[in-house]
Amino acid sequence: MTLEALLFYLFAAIACGSALAVVLTDNVVRMAFWLVMSLGAVASLFFLLEADFLGATQLLIYVGGTVVLLVFGVMLTATGPYVQIKTTPAEMFLGAGVGGLLLLVLASTVMGINWENDVAHALGAESEAALAADTTVDQSGTTGRPLGLAFVGVRPDAVGPDGAATRPGYLLPFEIVSVHLLVVLIGAAYLARAKRRVEPATDLLS
């Protein structure tokens, strides 16, 4: 077994096991802990997939930002010392059944396709060679710069034989997302603001 496979199985086990623990735990704080483990393991899988920038983003925004936000939510909405809203066994049983079936469908679909050949075939004959070339390229640890260039609309990684870019840049979606974030910032601040009760106006003269 290669080292890469070993690391993959380790992180995959942590990711799946922790995700399962999120479902099975009733205590919200413990759920947050397991969510951190799961998301952290997914970040490690990103690093294994040679997406180093994405792995770092996952750590910074998901684990360091979103989960902290969730824990904040837990603290602000805690009525007792440890919030536990139990799921009834019947609901759990039903959920497990439906989830198991869904997993079965997804897994059989994934296993039923020969990705190496069928996908390349579906994408066209000329891309088969590109696929063979692409998977052998070791772009390890250097995705930050191409990603940044893609966001400003330049694609040096996808240049056709005539020198024109074969893939789109992402400048417009990038701008839309940034405006979207601003809207969300204002919206969240508006929704979560502390409500001041307006005192009924008392007539001083009467």
């Binding site: 910074l60 360091g64 902290v68």
Partner: peptide, 23 residues
């Protein structure tokens, strides 16, 4: 570990410490 975006990674890793403290 030599990464292309190491400043970003180090900021990300250091931001995780807060989780241990909150918990």
């Amino acid at each position: 570990v030599s990464l292309d975006a190491s400043v970003f990674v180090i900021l990300a890793l250091m931001s995780l410490e807060v989780l241990g403290i909150i918990l």
